[in-house]
Structure formats: structure tokens, C-alpha cells
Design a protein around this nucleic acid. Structure first.
Length: 206
DNA sequence: GCGTAATCTAATCAACA
DNA sequence: TGTTGATTAGATTACGC
């Protein structure tokens, strides 16, 4: 998978968060919680965060990685070695956790303006930039990270769709031949994730 | 070098205007 | 109903021992 930040290009602006080192006691609590519920609700994650004195976002990442490791083990290990209680697919937990999500963050137009400006400047901000933005607009850093993820993702989708849409438009207008889509493709083909064009066709809220 | 936290994309769910 | 924040799986990167 393509990564935006090359290993040798680490600057203050794209530096990763330093690794969290969980203590034995913290891990005991986390593992115990995981064994009970691999898909904890937001309230549970918050409670755990409080209990082991860390951020809720770290709990979320820990559970994500833990589930991934479990799935991996499940695939690679012979079936008789599996611990039955923990290796179910846990569909009921998944369903339940959907009912207790974090409240949707609602950004003001000025917050969005700041985010978009930052995105145009750098679509892959490191921990320092994200924290700075978080302070600036008064939103947790984890929400900034999610916002950038969604924004990048939707930019990719939009860019994939644009040539098709241009074609459809031409067909709708009954304009035959000579109209070139090339221009659109070439200008969008670079690394310009920063374009706000992905929302330009639709209604914008900012 | 290994274990694993952090990060990424893509798909999907779901709140809200 | 479309937009977009939240969550997930799965893959990958890279930190810290």
C-alpha cells in the first residue's frame, strides 16, 4: 500500500506519534477486557482509558491491533489449538458496539475552513501538526486524524470518478467527438490530493 | 530482528441538515 | 437523501527493546 511519508523524509511536520508502552498491569486489564468483548462500546473504551490512565484513542488502536492479531492467528493455527470462547466471530458484539458509538463531531464552518487549509498544505500531517490543529480548533487530536483519513479517502474516490463523470456529462450534452477529457485526467493525475474539487460538484457546507 | 503501536486505504454504517 | 463523521478489516510502516 502506498504510504505518503517516505521513511527518510521524516520531518517535524509528519513525525509519527511516539509508541505507547503499556505496563504489565495495563495490559492485564486490556486483555481481560478483550477476552470479554473484542468490540467494546465507546463507553467501555472511555472507562478503560480512565482506568489505565491513557487516551481513548490508544485503547481503540490497541483493540484494532489485537483483533487483527487474533484473526491472523486464527487463520494460521490448526483448529484444535483455538481457544473456543475467544475465537468466535463475535457478531453480536459488533452489532452492539454500533449502538454505542462516539457522538458525531459537528464542525463549524470556521473549524472546517482551518482543516481544509491545513489539508491543502499537507494531507498527511504528523502528530505535531495534528496536535497543533487540535488546539487551534478545539477538537481532540484523534478527531483530526479521522477527518484527514476521511478527506483523503473521499478525494481518492472523487478522483477515480471524475473521468467517468466527465464522459457522462459529454454524452448527456450530446456533444460528439473533439471534446477531450485528457485535460482533466492529467491535471488530476498528479499528487494533488489537495484539490477541493471532490465536493465542488455537490453542495458544500462551508 | 521481533513484537506491536501507529498509520494507511477502502468499505461500510449511521447521524444529521 | 446526500454528505460526512465513526468504525471496521486488512495491509503496511516503523519504533523501541
Amino acid at each position: 500500500m502506498a504510504q505518503a511519508v517516505s521513511p527518510n523524509n521524516t520531518t517535524a511536520a509528519n513525525r509519527r506519534r511516539s509508541r505507547t508502552k503499556f505496563t504489565e498491569d495495563q495490559l492485564k486489564i486490556l486483555i481481560n477486557a478483550f477476552n470479554q468483548k473484542p468490540y467494546p462500546s465507546y463507553a467501555t473504551k472511555q472507562r478503560l482509558a480512565l482506568e489505565i490512565n491513557t487516551e481513548e484513542s490508544r485503547i481503540q488502536i490497541w483493540f484494532q491491533n489485537r483483533r487483527a492479531r487474533h484473526r491472523f492467528q486464527k487463520r494460521s493455527e490448526p483448529e484444535e489449538h483455538l481457544e473456543s470462547s475467544q475465537d468466535e466471530d463475535h457478531p453480536e458484539e459488533k452489532i452492539q458496539s454500533r449502538g454505542d458509538r462516539r457522538c458525531r463531531t459537528s464542525y463549524t464552518s470556521s473549524q472546517l475552513h482551518t482543516l481544509i487549509e491545513a489539508f491543502m498544505n499537507n494531507p498527511y500531517p504528523g502528530i505535531d501538526s495534528r496536535q497543533q490543529l487540535a488546539i487551534e480548533i478545539g477538537v481532540p487530536e484523534s478527531r483530526i486524524q479521522i477527518w484527514f483519513q476521511n478527506r483523503r479517502s473521499r478525494c481518492h474516490v472523487q478522483r477515480k470518478r471524475e473521468p467517468d463523470e466527465a464522459l457522462e456529462q459529454r454524452q448527456d450534452q450530446g456533444k460528439i467527438s473533439e471534446v477531450r477529457v485528457q485535460g482533466i485526467e492529467t491535471t488530476q493525475n498528479g499528487t494533488d490530493l489537495t484539490s477541493d474539487s471532490y465536493s465542488s460538484g455537490a453542495r458544500t457546507r462551508w
